[in-house]
C-alpha cells in the first residue's frame, strides 16, 4: 500500500467521505483539534471532508500556520477523483466506498456509524480489518486509531469476482460454462 507519489508537491490529503448518508458524528470527530494535530504530525497537509446530508459544518482552515488545511463539500459526482488524489481515506462503512477505496489501494480507516438502526455495516468493516485490509474505528476511537496508524502493515485487497456464481447458475440451468 503506501502513499501514492503525486509527484509535484508534498501535498498529502486525507479524504473523509460519508457517501449519501448523514454521519455528523464522523465529521465532528475529524473536526477535533486532537485529530487534526495527529494528522499534521503524520505529515498530512490537507483534510477534505465530503459531509453528505449531515448538518454539522466543519471549521475550514487555509492551513497557513503549518496546521492541516480543511475544506468541505456536500456531494460530488467525482468521488473517484478525490479518492485517487488522497493519501489516506476515512470513510463511512458502506460497501461501495470501502471497495472503491481498496481497489485504488489507498490506506483506509472505516468509521462505523453506531446511530444506524440495523447496524450490520460493522460486520464487513470488522472482517476486512481482521484481514488487515483496513482499519476499523468508531467516531470516539478515531483519534486512537489515527495515532496507532501503520499504513505499511495493511495488506492489498485482491478484488473478488463473480465467476463461481455464474458457473453454479449455468450448471443449475443446464447451460454450458463460458
Amino acid at each position: 500500500m503506501g502513499d501514492t507519489l503525486d509527484g509535484l508537491s508534498s501535498k498529502r490529503t486525507v479524504f473523509v467521505t460519508v457517501g449519501t448518508t448523514c454521519f455528523d458524528a464522523l465529521v465532528k470527530a475529524v473536526d477535533t483539534l486532537e485529530v487534526k494535530r495527529e494528522l499534521s504530525r503524520r505529515g498530512y497537509t490537507h483534510l477534505l471532508i465530503q459531509m453528505g446530508r449531515g448538518t454539522y459544518v466543519p471549521t475550514t482552515s487555509p492551513g497557513e500556520d503549518g496546521s492541516v488545511a480543511v475544506e468541505y463539500f456536500h456531494f460530488s459526482s467525482s468521488i473517484a477523483d478525490h479518492l485517487r488524489a488522497a493519501s489516506l481515506v476515512i470513510s463511512h462503512a458502506g460497501s461501495g466506498s470501502i471497495f472503491e477505496t481498496l481497489r485504488l489501494a489507498k490506506p483506509l480507516i472505516v468509521v462505523v456509524n453506531e446511530d444506524l438502526m440495523d447496524n450490520h455495516q460493522s460486520e464487513l468493516a470488522e472482517e476486512l480489518a481482521e484481514r488487515k485490509h483496513l482499519y476499523c474505528a468508531r467516531p470516539q476511537t478515531l483519534p486512537q486509531i489515527i495515532a496507532g496508524l501503520d499504513v505499511e502493515s495493511l495488506l492489498p485487497y485482491h478484488p473478488g469476482d463473480a465467476t463461481p456464481v455464474a458457473k453454479l447458475i449455468n450448471h443449475f440451468l443446464g447451460f454450458p460454462d463460458a
Binding site: 457517501g19 458502506g94 461501495g96 471497495f99 469476482d161 463473480a162 455464474a166 449455468n170 440451468l173 447451460f175
Partner: peptide, 19 residues
C-alpha cells in the same frame, strides 16, 4: 441500491447474457 447494484453488475458482467 448502491453496493447491491455494484455487486449485481459484477455478476452480470461474467454471465453469458445471450443465455
Amino acid at each position: 441500491s448502491g453496493g447491491h447494484t455494484a455487486e449485481m453488475m459484477n455478476l452480470l458482467s461474467v454471465l453469458q447474457t445471450d443465455s
